[in-house]
């Protein structure tokens, strides 16, 4: 039974029906109703104009999430972990459509943006972040493995790490193969030491635990609709100022429990 822990120093949230963490927190705590609404993705203002025009939904989503969670933090030296079920679905659909045509006139920008670490690369440019950056894919366990990798870095490197978990839906024929809700995600800033920023202490251990719940059926359904929203039950506890312990979504028989203790 091994344990990894860190302090949660910032949260970002964006998805259908919530534009930021304060809005989602109010919905999770029951202060405000959650209502499904299309995700409002802000323009990536931190990117130079030439890059701003080229980027798709995952970049706009990931940058908004990251900058919200890291508000007031020097991003140039902040290590990051990105985790997403897939890449830029709109871009992939366009590329595969082009490759099925006789001329195969692939756009160099589309190809450049097709890498899974596209949002991470644009984050580096926007945040001038030269610290290490990892980018994961773990199907329905995406958030869980992202959190494990992040706490592994916090433990091993003894420095703050920004986790950005996001999912964006596929268009065209791929949508039926991998159903995902509108663009959504969560970012967590995790540090080895407690500070005045710290909102809660988070601990992982390789053990079984009961499934988590937000306490609201429609928010539980939302949490289960995208790997990037796996943390909603945990964030509901944070929003309510309550401790919580629950299982995280995993695959292939691996078990991982997370515990949250709010900082008083």
């Amino acid at each position: 039974m091994s344990k990894l822990s860190a302090y949660l120093d910032g949260v970002g949230a964006l998805g259908p029906g919530f534009d930021n963490w304060p809005q989602l927190a109010a919905q999770l705590s029951g202060e405000a109703p959650w209502q499904a609404a299309p995700t409002q993705l802000p323009a990536p203002q931190a990117l130079p104009p030439a890059e701003r025009r080229r980027v798709g939904k995952p970049v706009r989503l990931a940058l908004a999430l990251g900058f919200e969670a890291a508000t007031g933090v020097d991003t140039t030296t902040l290590a990051t972990v990105f985790t997403a079920s897939g890449g830029d679905g709109d871009n992939m659909h366009a590329l595969c459509t082009t490759l099925a045509e006789p001329e195969r006139l692939v756009s160099p920008t589309r190809f450049t943006n097709s890498v899974h670490n596209g949002p991470a690369g644009y984050w580096g440019i926007a945040a001038r972040a030269q610290a290490p950056c990892n980018v994961l894919s773990a199907f329905d366990a995406g958030f869980t493995m992202g959190l494990l990798e992040t706490l592994g870095q916090v433990h091993g490197e003894q420095r703050a790490v920004l986790l950005i978990a996001y999912d964006t839906p596929y268009p065209g024929p791929l949508a039926r193969l991998r159903p995902l809700p509108d663009a959504c995600g969560v970012a967590l800033l995790l540090s080895p030491e407690r500070s005045e920023r710290s909102l809660a202490r988070i601990e992982l251990d390789t053990a079984a635990a009961p499934a988590g719940s937000t306490g609201q059926a429609e928010l539980d359904a939302l949490a289960n609709s995208a790997p990037a929203l796996t943390a909603l039950p945990l964030l509901a506890a944070l929003a309510k100022g309550q401790p919580a312990r629950c299982a995280l979504r995993t695959l292939n028989g691996f078990e991982l429990a997370v515990e949250l203790q709010p900082c008083a």
Binding site: T83, V115, H116, N117, A120, C133, N134, V135, L136, S137, A138, F139, A141, M145, L148, E149, T250, L251, N252, G253, F254, L256
Partner: peptide, 18 residues
């Protein structure tokens, strides 16, 4: 996933795509 199943493993598993 296919490598983990083939080897009969049940530990943490992810792909890195950078």
């Amino acid at each position: 996933d296919v490598v983990s199943r083939t080897l009969g493993l049940a530990g943490p598993a992810f792909a890195v795509s950078t």
